[in-house]
Design a protein around this nucleic acid. Sequence first.
DNA 1: ACAAGTATGCACCTTTTAGTAAGTACTAAG
DNA 2: CTTAGTACTTACTAAAAGGTGCATACTTGT
Lengths: 138, 138
Amino acid sequence: MSSTPSKPISTPVQACTPTLPGFTCGLDATLRVIAGKWKPLILYFLAQGGPTRYGELRRAVRDVSDKMLIQQLKELEADGLVKRTDYKEIPPRVDYSLTPLGLSLAEALVPLCTWGTENLDEVTRVFARREAGNGGGR
Amino acid sequence: MSSTPSKPISTPVQACTPTLPGFTCGLDATLRVIAGKWKPLILYFLAQGGPTRYGELRRAVRDVSDKMLIQQLKELEADGLVKRTDYKEIPPRVDYSLTPLGLSLAEALVPLCTWGTENLDEVTRVFARREAGNGGGR
DNA sequence: ACAAGTATGCACCTTTTAGTAAGTACTAAG
DNA sequence: CTTAGTACTTACTAAAAGGTGCATACTTGT
């Protein structure tokens, strides 16, 4: 008994088409594309900075290693989100920019960015607690 | 010479506040909160289904194990996105729902979900290629 | 000649994340 | 008494993700 809560919330938040060929929903598909520690940041940086040379990007996305940056850029390129331009010069000169698809994805990231900015204090508190929690843990 | 490209693109995509206390930007903060294979899906399911019992949730988010589901729910709860209600009954009865903060985050996920749905064919193609690439891999 | 900068590749290792399987305390059904 | 169901917990293991550092081929500056 009891069951059948049938108590939909006031704000439905519809948009997620269920049971698709390989993904649970569109959200799932998107998340797999941007999975990777640096991808959203790269996308975001390119959306704001336009075509950027490898070295610049590396200095911009601080804390990223060569291996990681190259790897993520390769995947983004293979996924059709980023365009790599090799000027075939010596010493090497290469730059990266967003494709229209990449740009549209970067735009879809904006609300997440806004949410993070608006709730920054909440989020910061949460993470402080997390780090306090495992204090000295090993 | 050469340097100073100063070549901003036509579509700025502004919204990312740079250099914050612990996060690169709001986007970074958000991504850390929803990091975890099942979190966005849980958030999304709860946004659409309202208060849901543990068992239901587990059956809804297929392929998730007890360990993972519980773990992610605990983190979401600790992060103030999900509310856990324990009815203190025997046998145990517990349900989960979104807090206002969780709901607002679920709403911010909508554009990503839309993007994924709109570009589903591109994304599907990309993943097909990825899997073809490591053909026979193990 | 040597150090530094350019964009990348590769091998190796550590950390993080996820999955499996079992166990707990208790009840209701058979 | 056995089985199933509820909501979890814990220990162990496998796999993925990420990091470090060295190597390349070539140029320019000291």
